[in-house]
Write a protein that binds this DNA or RNA. Structure first.
Length: 473
DNA sequence: TGCCTCTTAGA
DNA sequence: CTAAGAGGC
């Protein structure tokens, strides 16, 4: 007699029906499937914007499951205890989930797996978040890659399996276990900025992500190479938000990019290489989990970073009033939309870690607070890359000039004018939204004079380079 | 996925 | 005077 006991399908950052290997396996087993999302110790650690955005994704995904005759069971508590309770309540014999690679998730998942396995439950993680498992990519010497380009070359010609189609139905259990109500979790509670303002810029869910991918591949990917560098225009895919919550699979993106490349759209190669940057970040994080917490190159521990969040320059940077237009526009864009253009991310990171000589962790934590596309691997790698403390990092002496970058990448000032209201006769509506989104105690008004630079490019560059030159490492 | 300064060739 | 390349940070 075939096993008819339910399968618990534990969803985390994989909120989709399409190209979901664990879901596909569960659906084709013919057994009852109980999808569950747990507000657990890892979710507890999420900061304001990511937690809020995750809540939107979870709510949407519950509706998706309802559309195929299933449900999303919501429970709160430590993951292991919640799963054990659900096993007891439902008679489930199996727990499957999509594998995660950040240190907090790995700790949790290893404990869940070993404990449940010890209790006779089949507990297994199934790939689905990445194109290439981190341990399958090795240098000739047998180590992991520390430099992007050789990593990219090593994986470029690999076969990537085709995508899986979404199941049209999912067998329900004889009886559904109890579920919490999403609203009771108040996942937006820490979103004490204009969440209703940010809401206008988010793109929640699997269908929205697929529509976005199709439009990007059809209209924008050919010119991605050049257009991606212009923050005043919408030349990027904007899919990071969906990728981070698994609302679209990286495999679907990869195949769309490769098809576009075959169709003779040259920018597609660069875009696929950006997907491989994401892979590389997870590769590094898996092999060196301290990427999220410590200087990857330990000699940087001796560098005199400012680590005090209360420093006036740190506040000015966070609040978008450094007096450097490119920096302030970018910080405001992030506050209003939950996203920041990638070119701008490099510029604000260079300014914080070099001109202001502040530790990259300050920046990493603020991004984690504000970004709806927050990804633990990409965020940590990006900051260490910018600061110069990471593997394959930009050298510390490579200091972006945030003034001349405007002439290169924002010639018509479309970007800074979109996000900075002060001094404009007829400010862009988005520039005004910033003042509705920020807390009152920041005391900022569109009628203020735009501030003088707190640290000019020339002074900041000179100080940073002098400090670097005199370093004792 | 730098920026700056210096040098030199050529208009 | 400008453009382009080299080399240092």
């Amino acid at each position: 007699m075939p096993d008819d006991r339910p399968i618990l399908l534990w969803f985390r950052r994989d909120l989709r029906l399409s190209d979901h290997p664990a879901l596909d396996r569960a659906a084709s087993s013919g057994r009852p499937v109980i999808p569950v999302f747990i507000h657990d110790e890892v979710v507890e650690g999420y900061k304001a914007a990511p937690k809020w955005r995750l809540g939107l994704g979870v709510g949407h995904f519950a509706d998706r499951l309802a559309g195929i005759g299933s449900r999303l069971i919501l429970r709160r508590g430590e993951a292991l205890g919640v799963l054990q309770q659900l096993i007891e309540d439902t008679g489930a014999a199996t727990v499957w989930w999509t594998r995660a690679y950040d240190p907090a998730s790995i700790r949790r998942d290893e404990e869940v797996k070993s404990t449940l396995t010890g209790q006779g439950i089949e507990a297994a993680s199934i790939p689905g978040h990445l194109l290439f498992e981190p341990w399958t990519v090795e240098t000739k010497q047998g180590g992991f890659y520390k430099v992007y380009t050789p990593y990219m070359r090593a994986v470029w010609d690999r076969d990537v399996a085709p995508t899986l189609t979404a199941p049209s139905e999912l067998r329900a259990p004889a009886q559904w276990p109890d579920s919490d109500t999403l609203d009771d979790w108040r996942m937006g509670a820490a979103m004490d900025r204009g969440a209703d303002i940010v809401r206008a810029f988010v793109n929640v869910g699997e269908e929205a992500a697929q529509t976005r991918l199709a439009g990007f591949a059809r209209n924008d990917i050919a010119d991605y190479d050049d257009a991606r560098d212009i923050p005043g225009q919408d030349g990027t895919s904007n899919l990071s938000e969906n990728l981070t919550y698994g609302e679209i699979s990286v495999r679907a993106c990869y195949h769309a990019g490769m098809r576009a490349l075959d169709d003779g759209k040259p920018g597609a190669r660069t875009w696929v290489q950006e997907l491989i940057w994401r892979e590389f970040a997870y590769h590094l994080l898996f092999h060196t989990p301290r990427l999220v917490s410590d200087n990857w190159r330990e000699d940087w521990d001796a560098f005199p970073w400012n680590e005090d969040e209360r420093l006036a320059e740190v506040k000015a940077w966070k609040q978008g009033r450094t007096g450097i237009r490119f920096v302030d526009a970018a910080m405001r864009e992030m506050y209003v939309t939950g996203r920041m253009h990638n070119r701008a991310r490099m510029i604000v990171a260079s300014y914080l870690t070099k001109h202001l000589m502040c530790h990259w962790k300050i920046g990493m934590h603020w991004f984690e607070e504000c970004l709806i596309d927050w990804d633990p691997a990409s965020n940590a790698m990006g900051w260490q890359w910018s600061a110069g403390s990471g593997p394959d990092a930009t050298p510390y002496f490579r200091v972006f000039n945030p003034v001349s970058q405007l002439d290169k990448f924002d010639k018509d000032r479309a970007y800074v004018n979109r996000w900075i209201a002060e001094g404009q006769d007829d400010p862009h509506p988005d520039a005004l939204k910033y003042f509705d989104a920020i807390p009152r105690h920041w005391h900022m008004s569109p009628d203020d004079d735009y501030p003088e630079p707190i640290v000019s490019h020339e002074d900041g560059r000179e100080r940073a380079l002098a400090t670097y030159k005199n370093r004792d490492f």
